[in-house]
Nucleic acid binder design. Structure first.
Lengths: 149, 149
DNA sequence: TAAGATTGAAGACTCAATCTTC
DNA sequence: GAAGATTGAGTCTTCAATCTTA
């Protein structure tokens, strides 16, 4: 029972994910962005000119609404996003990305692309596609947010 | 560029890993164990009666020596592990698992097995083997600790 | 020089709770 | 009741630095 700990999926997934996140945060540090903030900007960049609520951004980033609330607060202070009450839902706040936000997003994504390339070098193109396919399956079964491919 | 954020390997890996860790911590809470502590007990259980240093345990658990130091402190207080100076290296402290530690480890691993089963249901046996194979490849290329199969 | 242990400070995250609006 | 936003408390983690020993 104890012998197979290192073969367990959650363990292996955590080891790889933690190492990737570590590298990613290193590339992101010069831009003053963390994972939640980059994910928020990226989602807003895709949806632009539409807006998303903080709760939705949190779900798509895999963090709680509380974490995303703090992340958005920082983005607001720096003028990377703006926010306005949703006319139909009094409590909901629509978050929009600004031109400054788009510019920083482009820079940050270019910088983080190296992490993808470096990590994926170990896998062939077929393997990469197969890995993505299985991760999508897992995300689906766990009811996580899954963007359309 | 922004469009494929949701398809990036670090993002997908983080989403799945975070969800799995979340479930795992939920199962672990009744035992008063976190990831670092369970990983330490599991590694020590495999190596018993040999000992491991805190630094080694940290590397194998995917956390820093500082995190593992705190984790071990808690395990020591609860009598789940004991520690003694390594006779050959004055600064190194050998950590051993106790009978109490082994008993709790067995209980905790039984409880967390449900997370594995539940998450892997979405994948066939072949897919599971293939996923493990690719994760091992990634761990190897990133020079992470990889137990022998 | 290098490796191990540890402390203090800071960041990121969750849980719990509250408030507001539909 | 359900969904969204936010605050406060607590946990887990890393970064930076220090001390010790081979």
């Amino acid at each position: 029972v104890a012998e197979d700990f290192g073969q367990r999926l959650p363990y292996m997934m955590r080891m790889v994910s933690a190492a990737l996140s570590q590298q990613l945060e290193g590339e992101l540090r010069p831009f003053g962005l963390n994972h939640a903030q980059l994910a928020a900007l990226a989602q807003l960049g895709v949806e632009d000119p539409d807006a998303l609520s903080g709760a939705t951004l949190g779900r798509r980033a895999g963090v709680t609404a509380q974490s995303m609330s703090a992340a958005i607060g920082s983005l607001l202070d720096r003028g990377l996003v703006v926010r306005a009450p949703n006319p139909d839902h009094g409590r909901r706040l629509d978050v929009h990305i600004t031109d400054e936000g788009k510019a920083l997003l482009a820079e940050a994504q270019a910088a983080t692309a190296v992490v993808d390339e470096r990590s994926l070098m170990a896998l062939s193109a077929d393997e990469q596609a197969e890995l993505r396919r299985m991760l999508r399956k897992l995300m689906e079964s766990m009811r996580l947010y899954l963007p359309k491919h």
